[in-house]
Design a protein around this nucleic acid. Structure first.
Length: 294
DNA sequence: TGCAGTGTTGCTTC
DNA sequence: CGAAGCAACACTGC
């Protein structure tokens, strides 16, 4: 589940590897990954363009192309990129075949390649996505700006403060867990980090957002930054599908305290972690440490 | 073995 | 209009 730290990891790696390269050609293994326009039109539009930047906003990855066009990419749950340098080729079943990149395909998660970009300098950029939820859209700068305007503040934006978060939460009377995961309120937090942030803040996930004390809001704000940064330093969470552009797993999963730890002991009090469903999502918390529901 | 669970977003329904 | 529910999909685990 690529959330902020996972998409940021991909962004950073891609910035080092693909900026300045030209898209020579695009090879589809599943054409429908490109939304809104036919694949052939898409291919014609992007071929020959230079990659001039890579950015992230919320969980979106944006690959900026020359002359104001952008690849707007959402990885949804199982999407990830794989980059291969030198003489890589692809077989018609979507698997990398050249020996140099064999380590990438031995991992089952890497075997669902849907599209490949052949770049200048013998670089091949593939997008893998087991569940076919991920998409690529071709948008110009104006459409991009309009789309991104729907999102809430970025956790690491210097203008985002505990006070700003407090103003957002005061307007919502639903469960804090839902608000944290709502991309139009706060950008980049998904199920894994919402559970971890609330545990670290000693806040029960069902607590109404507008009933939180100033102290709790401050804790949630601080822990959001702290946990996302810690995960970023660990190159994300790979408890299931996430891989970086070299096919490697992130290590934050080893550091998690509650997410997917149902019935295991809480690292602080030793009591069993509980699992409930909030908004249809599995939610993990410690009933002793996160007691109060207001 | 069949079927519930998994998770993000956006569309539909209330 | 806000909020809840579900579909999109494919694989895993019980």
């Amino acid at each position: 589940m690529p959330e902020l730290p996972e998409v940021e990891t991909i962004k950073n790696d891609l910035q080092d590897k693909i900026i300045g390269k030209k898209i020579i050609s695009v090879f589809p293994l599943w054409k429908e990954i490109v939304k809104d326009i036919p694949f052939d039109i898409f291919a014609k539009q992007v071929e020959g363009r230079e990659i001039v930047g890579v950015e992230r906003r919320a969980k979106n990855l944006i690959i900026k192309l020359s002359d104001g066009l952008n690849l707007l990419i959402h990885l949804k749950m199982t999407g990830h990129f794989l980059l291969a340098e030198d003489s890589a080729r692809v077989s018609d079943n979507g698997r990398w075949v050249e020996a140099k990149n064999k380590n990438l395909t031995e991992d089952k998660q890497n075997q669902f390649i849907r599209i490949i970009f052949y770049l200048s300098g013998n670089v091949m950029l593939a997008m893998s996505d087991l569940r076919k939820f991920a998409y690529i859209k071709l948008v110009d700068d104006k459409e991009m700006a309009e789309f991104l305007a729907n999102y809430g503040p970025e956790p690491f934006d210097e203008n985002f403060t505990a006070e700003k978060l407090g103003e957002i939460l005061a307007k919502k009377k639903t469960a804090i867990k839902k608000v944290l995961m709502d991309q139009s309120q706060v950008a980049g937090v998904g199920n894994i980090y919402a559970d971890e942030i609330l545990w670290a803040s000693h806040v029960h996930p069902l607590t109404a957002a507008n009933k939180l004390t100033d102290k709790e809001v401050e804790d949630i704000f601080e822990n959001t930054r702290k946990i996302l940064l810690q995960s970023l330093k660990n190159r994300g969470t790979s408890t299931s599908d996430f891989r970086d552009i070299e096919g490697r797993k992130g290590t934050f999963g080893d550091l998690r305290n509650v997410y997917r730890r149902t019935d295991l002991p809480c690292p602080v009090c030793g009591g069993p972690i509980a699992r409930i469903s909030i908004g249809g999502r599995g939610t993990h918390f410690c009933p002793r440490c996160q007691k109060e529901v207001k």
